[in-house]
């Protein structure tokens, strides 16, 4: 018998899933493919292989500044979000808090509210309190959407974490502070690193909020957006986009492998 009953034809389903994967990947793969194409248009037939656009992309002065700005936002954002996420996840898993469900609901709000709404609401708030738009205001927006991600990544991690290890350390006379650093933190390290990497990626690639919250200093996605108006710049944008894709994919694969490592109680949990 080929597989349990109650299933549709496996061959057909597998075929569909493969086609679906191609549908998901193909548009994105065009960026790297055409970044090496010796022509200004993204069109067939391709006219030859060149490194010209990558060289042009690297030498763009505005790009370096934008890259640095993006890193300057994403690093603190990932650190702050992960710290807040870890504290929140610890509170929700270790203490029977009243209103825990309401709190969890509140933390999902930033993820289910359109980013446009979050962006303008924050924009109005900053204006109202006389805070000038800058990389800081972009960072605030990014922390808002990264904390829920971090929290839910770490929640699922901490839920499968054996708390008796902490209790044992406490019974042996360690202070809670030491217990955290010597037991909780090392054991949950993969989840924490995954959270750092994922929140870094989210902030690094985020456009919808940054568009409203950035002042004169632009982040990399804002820089790309400004370049899209010029058809001549398209090939170097493709090269830049490809570079970003490669970095993102690398970071996310590492993060996902870390996140799923150790928490192998395969409960079917995927977020």
């Amino acid at each position: 018998m080929s597989g349990p009953p109650g299933k549709f034809n496996i061959g057909w389903l597998r075929g569909y899933t493969v086609v679906y994967l191609i549908f998901i990947y193909l548009p994105i793969l065009l960026l790297p493919i055409f970044s090496f194409n010796d022509g200004i248009y993204v069109a067939f037939p391709m006219s030859g292989f060149t490194f010209q656009w990558w060289a042009e992309m690297v030498s763009q002065p505005g790009m370096h500044k934008a890259l640095w700005n993006s890193i300057a936002v994403a690093v603190p954002v990932s650190l702050i979000s992960t710290i807040l996420g870890m504290m929140g996840a610890k509170a929700l898993t270790s203490y029977p808090l009243y209103g825990a469900r309401a709190l969890t609901g509140m933390f999902t709000l930033p993820l289910v509210t359109p980013f446009l709404i979050l962006g303008i609401a924050l924009l109005i708030t900053f204006k109202n309190y006389g805070i000038n738009l800058s990389l800081f205001t972009v960072g605030v927006g990014h922390v808002l959407i990264c904390v829920p991600f971090s929290l839910f990544v770490l929640l699922s991690r901490l839920e499968s974490f054996d708390r008796s290890l902490e209790e044992a350390a406490l019974d042996l006379g360690e202070t809670p502070w030491i217990v955290f650093w010597r037991v909780t933190f090392p054991i949950n390290m993969p989840g924490i690193v995954a959270s750092l990497l994922l929140t870094f990626t989210i902030s690094f690639d985020e456009f919808l909020l940054a568009f409203f919250l950035t002042g004169d200093a632009s982040t990399l996605p804002i820089f790309i957006w400004s370049q899209l108006r010029f058809p001549v710049k398209l090939p170097s944008v493709l090269a830049l986009g490809s570079a970003i894709l490669v970095v993102t994919v690398f970071i996310v694969v590492v993060a996902e492998l870390l996140r799923r490592k150790g928490s192998t109680r395969s409960t079917g949990k995927v977020i």
């Binding site: 807040l84 203490y95 808090l97 709000l109 930033p110 609401a121 109005i124 708030t125 605030v140 808002l144």
Partner: peptide
């Protein structure tokens, strides 16, 4: 009050949601 510590731990994230989400939406 053992639960106090739990609330203290979750409070920075709650504060963030109040300051950067709830109050901006109300202002909107």
């Amino acid at each position: 009050f053992p639960l106090l510590k739990g609330y203290a731990l979750v409070s920075p994230a709650v504060l963030l949601m109040v300051l950067a989400l709830i109050s901006p939406l109300l202002l909107l």
